Amino acid sequence: MKAAPEDQVILLDVQRLDNDVTRIEHRITSLRKGDQLTELGTKAAALRGELAAATGLVEDAERELARLESDTAIAQARVERDTTLLQNVANAKDAAGLQSELDSLQRRIGDLETSELEVMEQLDGLRARVGDIEAQLADADAARAGLAAERDAEIARLEADRASAVQSRADVAAKVPDDLLALYDRQRARYGFGASLLQGGVSTASGVTLTASDLQTIRAAAPDDVVLCPDSDAILVRTPESGL
């Protein structure tokens, strides 16, 4: 294929803009995957599980406390009833029976009140744990929301950059002859690079120094010959800095 040297040089700008588009797209993909957001989401999910468990323990303790308080109230009501009966009973045997029951009820109330204190202490600890988890969850949710907002803003900026690069690429590519551009697109689709600058005997696409034999073949080619890089298969663009 033949193409004017100046048209071949334009391919370097096309390649640069294609590289920009690819780089931006990779960055957008990376941001959308959101590794940090995933980590925060996993952390928040774990905290919600902990919160549900801790809240369940608080509810269990509250029910136990309510039961103990109810039992204490019932026992105290019976103490009041038996005390009134004892004050009015005339039979010694009945009085002894009531006194025995009162003593038993007082012990029962003492045990219940001890249990109430223990449960209340547990409840304080459990409620503190719930509060701590809620604070951690709020922090995680706030961090995730902030990170998501930053990510969305960055993606919007990158999408604008991509649109600009795509338009610039189209404007530059329009200056290249159709057959030359088609070859560039084909080589880039196959090998990742469509054009490579030969600079000081090095193909910039591959980063490899061409052999003396390859350089000799390239020197023998006419300026308007389209030459492919022996290492990257990209169109090898020759300029005064190529070292030929």
Rank of each mutant, 00 (worst) to 15 (best):
R48A: 15
E50A: 11
L51Y: 09
A52K: 15
A52T: 14
A53S: 14
A54F: 08
T55A: 15
T55M: 07
G56S: 05
L57T: 11
V58H: 03
V58I: 09
E59Q: 12
E59K: 13
E59F: 02
E59D: 05
A61G: 05
A61W: 03
A61V: 00
R63I: 08
R63H: 07
R63E: 09
E64C: 00
L65G: 06
A66D: 10
A66S: 14
R67N: 11
L68I: 12
E69H: 06
E69C: 03
E69Y: 05
S70H: 11
S70R: 14
S70F: 08
D71M: 07
D71S: 07
D71P: 00
T72G: 09
T72N: 07
T72R: 15
A73L: 04
I74D: 11
A77I: 02
A77F: 01
A77W: 01
R78F: 02
V79N: 07
E80R: 11
R81I: 10
R81G: 03
R81P: 01
D82H: 12
T83H: 02
T83D: 12
T84M: 04
T84Q: 11
L85E: 10
L85H: 04
L86C: 03
Q87E: 11
N88D: 06
N88I: 03
A90L: 06
N91G: 04
N91S: 07
N91W: 03
A92L: 10
A92D: 11
A92T: 03
K93P: 05
D94C: 03
A96L: 13
G97P: 03
G97A: 13
G97Q: 14
L98P: 02
L98W: 08
L98R: 07
Q99V: 08
Q99C: 02
Q99Y: 00
S100H: 09
E101I: 04
E101K: 13
L102A: 13
L102Y: 04
D103R: 10
D103I: 14
D103T: 15
S104M: 09
S104H: 08
L105A: 14
L105G: 12
Q106T: 13
R107E: 15
R108G: 15
R108M: 07
I109G: 09
G110V: 05
D111W: 00
L112G: 08
L112F: 11
E113T: 14
S115Y: 00
E116K: 14
E116G: 01
E116M: 15
L117V: 06
E118K: 13
E118Y: 07
E118I: 05
E118D: 12
M120D: 08
L123E: 10
L123N: 01
D124S: 09
G125I: 08
G125F: 04
G125W: 04
G125T: 03
L126A: 13
R129H: 10
R129P: 01
V130P: 05
V130Y: 07
V130A: 09
G131P: 04
G131M: 05
E134C: 05
E134H: 07
A135C: 01
Q136N: 12
Q136V: 00
L137E: 05
L137V: 09
L137C: 10
L137F: 04
A138Q: 02
A140F: 02
A143G: 03
A143L: 12
R144A: 15
R144K: 14
A145C: 05
L147F: 10
A148P: 02
A148E: 15
A148Y: 03
A149E: 13
A149W: 04
A149S: 13
E150Y: 00
E150F: 01
R151L: 02
R151C: 05
A153T: 08
I155Y: 10
R157Q: 14
